[in-house]
Design a protein around this nucleic acid. Structure first.
Lengths: 140, 140
DNA sequence: CTTGAACCTGTAGTCGCTACAGATGCGACC
DNA sequence: GGTCGCATCTGTAGCGACTACAGGTTCAAG
């Protein structure tokens, strides 16, 4: 079992498992400066604390919400310095929400197009296909 | 005016403009083997024909429909060899359609989460924010 | 003290382009 | 035929957000 070391520190693998990400993601976030370089064991292994786990969870939760890394970097520094207002965060979120809605609309248009053209197919062994014809010729 | 050369060949820039893509995309598609290496002028400039324009349009239309490059490679070789049935193409399209629908569902979930949490904001100069609290604590 | 998993480092690959630098070609005009 | 300026040529690096690998070391359990 790999849990914690003698003084309660977490290894990289354990941190990743607990926070719910790939082990290499932890190292990646350190490299790009989202996670601070942690303490090391005498042999050079990273040793994390509970605070690191909370910070990583924050980042991962932000990613799940679709925030890009650079926005998370801003969010983290605002939180670190307690320098934010609800209005600031809400504005960032609403901007982000707009882009999510745009993406949904784009995909819905695509969905309609794809279902329309595939509905026109007869299927089976027929050596002609309206999808190919559509791609060869006029746009749908 | 840059249209066609003496024998009706298209330059790379003209081809890109006519087909509707970035000039560098043409070279990229050649590099990855979607477009065949075209004839060259004595000085080494690419010279394209109408058939190249049709092929490029096919690829771009496929990209607009969201097909990944590798699927377009398959589609192109099937079309080149007249070796496809409507059923084959329809199956590819339906698989692709499913993944588009999955992505829509994921984004809709995200949209609901983001609008729910931003609705809880009071906004303005308030130094606490439910969005941040959410990211620091329990998942929404 | 041995064993095997976990970790260390740096780097390359993913996808689909786009951008750049530095050199050369092309065609229009004079 | 000379000059001008745009277009094109080549190879390579960068984007975003990781993930995978190679080749070596450390850790901890038995």
């Amino acid at each position: 079992m790999t849990f914690t070391t003698s003084r309660g520190a977490l290894t990289r693998g354990t941190l990743a498992k607990r926070a719910g990400c790939h082990i290499e993601t932890v190292r990646y976030y350190e490299k790009i400066g989202l996670l601070a370089p942690p303490a090391r064991s005498p042999g050079g292994h990273r040793l994390y604390r509970e605070a690191d786990q909370r910070r990583l969870r924050f980042i991962l939760r932000g990613r799940e919400l679709g925030f890009p890394i650079e926005e998370l970097r801003s969010l983290l520094s605002m939180v670190d310095e307690h320098a934010y207002t609800c209005g600031d965060i809400q504005a960032m979120t609403l901007t982000h929400l707009t882009s999510v809605r745009d993406r949904i609309r784009d995909l819905q248009r695509l969905e309609r197009t794809l279902s329309t053209i595939s509905d026109r197919c007869t299927g089976g062994q027929v050596p002609d296909c309206p999808i190919i014809d559509e791609m060869l010729g006029a746009p749908a």
